[in-house]
Design a protein around this nucleic acid. Structure first.
Lengths: 137, 137, 137, 137
DNA sequence: GTGGTCTAGACCACG
DNA sequence: GTGGTCTAGACCACT
């Protein structure tokens, strides 16, 4: 078992490690690097590879499970969900909207116009689309 | 001294209170409700009015000062900055980009296309522009 | 030996597989699909057909035996019990009462009145009676 | 700080301790022993009183929070929710229905008719209503 | 082997 | 003081 290439964590960042893991998995799924049905490393494997405590991985996996990104099959392991329909969609949309408003205000304080803010978002989206192409090849 | 009408804080939200304060000030400045040179309430006053801990306001003001949103003039008080050019611009831009990428991934997991994500951001921007008009009148 | 049509198991559910098996057998017996004296598949057969671990079926059969739902006759096989009088009746009744209390509390937290809770149970019972008619035809 | 009279836990039961805590709090809230706005003991207080690890209490409180039974006010403590509207209502209702079906089948295997099952549920409901009266006095 | 629970004790962010 | 995160290591249920 080697460290999954789709996951990088940095224990020195301020973000909790378990958040870094969930983010990494979600990113890999969104990119298509991880496909529905793919098996994730076991809790203990991943904990060993990332050199973190296994409970940290447990917490990350549980959060991914409540977000319906992964599903646990008893005794067999953990897999990318085939039916990723979260029940907390509305709350997460609200949270996203709030975050956007905050960042819009932040951008204004950084000297940007609202148009420049929109452009920045476009840039992020394009960067993502390009990166996704790259991964697929 | 009465509670500033431009600031509402809610200790029940998950966001730290000092963040709610900085956000409120930044929002008021971005909207033009607070203008450069305007005097802010003192730490002591604001803490009393918001019924929060004195240190919480100190922390908020410190953060606003490092972001060059406000200026503290010793013995005179705290004012909206006349020269709001932050030195930490690059880090904050980076942080914003990272957050955008995270939210883009989140939106994909919520079943949105990248176009729908862009639309959502547009919606937020328009909502802001409309709201800003409202405030000015 | 083919997979019994009266038994469906799904390793993705959170319920342990051995519980799913006992539940399936109990349900089939309660519906009359399995009659006293009917022969059940052997542990080995069932494990193969359901594509589950052999020990999982062993555990399910053991539990069914202690509940006096099935009887193992050495050398002949496993059969639906002719005399289904469990010795652990009192404990199981207690367990049922506890579960009912827990669900009653849960229903209150979901905004239901005790009457609505009773109605829900009625609904379940009617659904069962209808389904049982369907099976018999 | 004394052990809350509304909470009994037994580390020897098979149910995880954190579930026993959530159940106890939900029960007390449903009974009206704990009212919206009431303060719960702090994580560390409760952990000390129950002689369990504080993380066990943390887990229980977090589950109660996602079920919207309690809410955390930063730095002040944990309180019974004023607005207990859970977002996972549908899933919990489904879970309840499934459990009811299972218990109905169980009751049949314990020699009860469907009418007797209904009666048992009535008995539980009446016992609850009586107990609730008792608590109120 | 798998994930789930619990303990013990440390450290951090927030108020 | 509050809750949140993490580590280390144990034990259990299930397959």
């Amino acid at each position: 078992m080697v460290k999954p290439m789709w996951l990088n964590i940095n224990p020195r960042l301020t973000d909790p490690i378990y958040i870094q893991i969930t983010r990494g998995v979600k990113s890999a799924v969104a990119k298509g690097v991880l496909q529905p049905g793919d098996k994730l490393p076991s809790v203990r494997e991943l904990a060993t590879e990332l050199a973190v405590n296994h409970n940290t991985v447990v917490k990350a996996y549980q959060e991914l499970e409540t977000d319906k990104v992964i599903e646990v099959i008893r005794g067999r392991g953990t897999f990318i969900s085939l039916n990723p329909n979260p029940s907390n969609r509305d709350e997460r949309m609200d949270e996203m909207r709030k975050s956007m408003r905050t960042w819009l205000i932040e951008s204004i304080h950084l000297g940007m116009s609202t148009d420049e803010f929109t452009d920045l978002v476009q840039e992020i989206v394009h960067e993502w689309n390009d990166g996704k192409e790259g991964e697929k090849e």
